Simulated assay, not measured.
Amino acid sequence: MRIGFAGLGNMGGRMAACITGGGRDVLGYDVRPEHVTATGAEPAASVGELTDGSDLLLLSLPDSRVVEAVVLGDDGVLAHARPGQIVVDLSTAAPDSTTRLHGLLADRGAAYLDAGVSGGAAAAEQGTLTLMVGGEAEVLDRARPVLELFSAHIFHCGPSGAGHTVKLLNNFLNAIALSATAEVMVAGKKAGLDLATLLAVLNASSGVNFATLNRFPKIIHGDYLKGGLTNTLMLKDVHLYAELVARLGVISPNSAGPLASFGLARALGYADEISNTVVDAIGDLSGGVRLHTTEQAPPREEPTR
């Protein structure tokens, strides 16, 4: 099975490197060619060439708009798709867009799996991601040997769109935990608490969550775990979640918190920095607080518009 990979940025590049590190050849395409060579992949000149040269084509792209451009463009995936080919979308995308693309590719005899990923840059680098997959189970079985090169857990969640739906539900809880914990840690800092002790209490109590366990033990020492989801992308994911539950007829009073927090981070100049820096955005408006220093941070300049 020839493997192709489109989108070799923070996450895609790490996943592709796991595949090449596992001894498999990869044909890659990215708008920044240096990303392709950094993974050990062979560069393709276009999406069309990538699709022609792949039996299993993986996509790791920023959002549905980019996914649709890559799939539906004049020299895109759909124009070159063929019977028996498998396309796996590892992006965080809108489920309704996913099911539409699934149907269009099915008309050409190709299969389309939506595979949301969780675990961040560290898990992508170590090959221990969690995958939430929507689409036909037998197609997943065919793709599984390659997906297992960068994933420790693979769940078949249901038909097309189910994987991306589960991903949005998971990312919303991640956004809630990260933004709420950031607020709590800034409050703890201003209260004069020892932050390591505060985290130990939280992790032994009912406030424990992924952020208290895996993010803030590093952040309080100045390590923001760079390379993961940016504030802009986190905000995009929460918006997608809000749109999803609105279509489902589910009220979402809890969306306001992470929308405000990550929107604040973007407005204060942290747009393209890892979403863990939401704690600095909250700290900025709380007197210039930084968790890892005894000094107040200087005011950030107003971003240009």
Results as ranks from 00 to 15, higher is better:
residue 230 T to E: 08
residue 296 Q to N: 15
residue 31 V to A: 12
residue 264 L to F: 10
residue 233 L to H: 10
residue 241 Y to R: 03
residue 52 D to W: 03
residue 262 F to N: 01
residue 205 S to G: 14
residue 216 F to N: 04
residue 31 V to P: 03
residue 161 G to Q: 04
residue 304 T to Q: 13
residue 169 L to A: 13
residue 85 Q to S: 08
residue 183 E to G: 10
residue 68 E to M: 13
residue 95 P to I: 08
residue 220 I to L: 09
residue 6 A to W: 00
residue 114 D to E: 12
residue 297 A to F: 10
residue 223 D to C: 12
residue 229 L to P: 02
residue 243 E to I: 02
residue 251 I to Q: 13
residue 297 A to R: 15
residue 167 K to P: 02
residue 107 D to N: 13
residue 81 A to Q: 04
residue 91 S to K: 03
residue 260 A to Y: 08
residue 79 A to H: 15
residue 12 G to N: 04
residue 89 D to V: 13
residue 93 A to D: 13
residue 235 L to Q: 10
residue 122 A to V: 14
residue 105 L to P: 00
residue 39 T to A: 04
residue 104 L to K: 15
residue 114 D to G: 06
residue 133 V to I: 12
residue 106 A to W: 02
residue 78 L to F: 10
residue 271 A to D: 15
residue 48 G to L: 14
residue 137 A to R: 15
residue 14 R to V: 01
residue 107 D to Y: 07
residue 88 V to Q: 00
residue 12 G to H: 01
residue 26 V to M: 08
residue 3 I to G: 04
residue 51 T to V: 08
residue 296 Q to Y: 12
residue 271 A to S: 15
residue 274 I to M: 07
residue 85 Q to F: 09
residue 211 A to F: 04
residue 265 A to S: 12
residue 48 G to C: 13
residue 78 L to E: 10
residue 221 H to T: 08
residue 39 T to W: 00
residue 140 L to S: 06
residue 189 K to D: 02
residue 34 E to C: 06
residue 237 D to I: 04
residue 177 A to V: 07
residue 159 P to C: 06
residue 285 L to D: 07
